[in-house]
């Protein structure tokens, strides 16, 4: 899609100002400066530390695979979001290419997470190629976080081939952090294995107020022990690992008190109360969803 030439609302200046303020802070909330408010809709953004890495991410991030529309991504970045999740497998790499176009003028201000398909987890060469393809598509020479997607067993978490591929990529400066995602109802057990492996920096885990997700589109159902999962989050964080939450809206809107209709913004706010979660990858497919989801940080 075409891009209008020009700056992104003095975004770098905005990030420079706010970034200086948040150094050293684990969790901090900042209102956009007045000049931003004049140009864009106001958004308070909250930054959290990504483990002990020194990287700061907004507590609400973008799940990039949900849209093919670059203007929606730009809107979220304009509102201060600085984290985006994508994957080599999304739209055959096209999602990464779109993201690369949108962020190329402010790449260093964005924390990119991409994924390697677990189908190639036994082939270090294929994994290396996947990382190279992601770098090319994203128009960058480094990716902040690379994860192996869909770890559902100890084998995936402790696969020496995966470790070799990630280690080589780190040594080459192609990725900064590595991790895994898990979608199963036993994610807390997978997470413990991943933490005890003492190799990974991040884990991407389903987490929402319902303690389950019946995907709003697929209808597929998975549930977990909320208390056990949150305990594992604490354990992970205590060991220096960071939690990235997904399926954050898949538990449905959160209905409070006597309300008859809940809201997805409240569902996200429920997640935000857990400071063990560094960032949530939230799918945003429209301008309205961007406003609602980013607004949860306010």
């Amino acid at each position: 899609m075409a891009k209008k030439s020009g700056n992104v609302c003095n975004r770098k200046e905005f990030l420079k100002r706010t970034g200086q303020s948040i150094l050293g802070a684990g969790v901090a909330t900042f209102a956009c400066p007045a000049f931003i408010k004049n140009v864009r809709a106001a958004a308070n953004v909250e930054y959290r530390a990504l483990g002990s890495t020194g990287i700061k991410v907004t507590s609400i991030g973008l799940g990039g695979s949900r849209t093919n529309e670059p203007s929606v991504l730009k809107r979220a970045f304009d509102m201060g979001v600085n984290f985006i999740d994508t994957g080599r497998m999304y739209a055959q790499g096209r999602n990464e290419e779109m993201i690369g176009k949108v962020i190329k003028d402010f790449r260093k201000d964005i924390v990119i997470q991409s994924k390697i398909d677990q189908k190639i987890q036994d082939d270090a060469q294929a994994m290396g190629k996947s990382i190279d393809d992601s770098l090319k598509a994203l128009q960058t020479d480094y990716i902040d976080i690379m994860i192996i997607r869909g770890a559902t067993s100890e084998k995936a978490v402790n696969n020496p081939v995966v470790r070799e591929a990630f280690s080589k990529a780190k040594e080459a400066g192609k990725i900064r952090l590595c991790g895994f995602s898990s979608h199963s109802g036993e994610s807390h057990k997978i997470l413990r294995m991943g933490v005890d492996a003492k190799f990974y920096d991040v884990a991407m885990i389903p987490y929402n107020h319902a303690g389950n997700f019946r995907h709003t589109v697929y209808g597929i159902y998975s549930e977990w022990d909320q208390e056990a999962l949150e305990n594992e989050f604490k354990y992970a964080v205590s060991q220096g690992m960071s939690i990235i939450a997904m399926k954050t809206c898949s538990g449905g809107p959160l209905v409070k008190g006597d309300e008859t209709r809940g809201s997805y913004q409240d569902a996200l706010k429920w997640n935000l109360r857990n400071k063990d979660v560094s960032v949530m990858a939230v799918g945003m497919a429209s301008f309205r969803e961007v406003a609602e989801d980013v607004g949860a940080m306010s």
Partner: peptide, 17 residues
Amino acid sequence: RPESLWNYINGGALPYL
């Protein structure tokens, strides 16, 4: 099926739906 495609291509299933 639409309700289980998630098991195969994960988040990539959304546009197919």
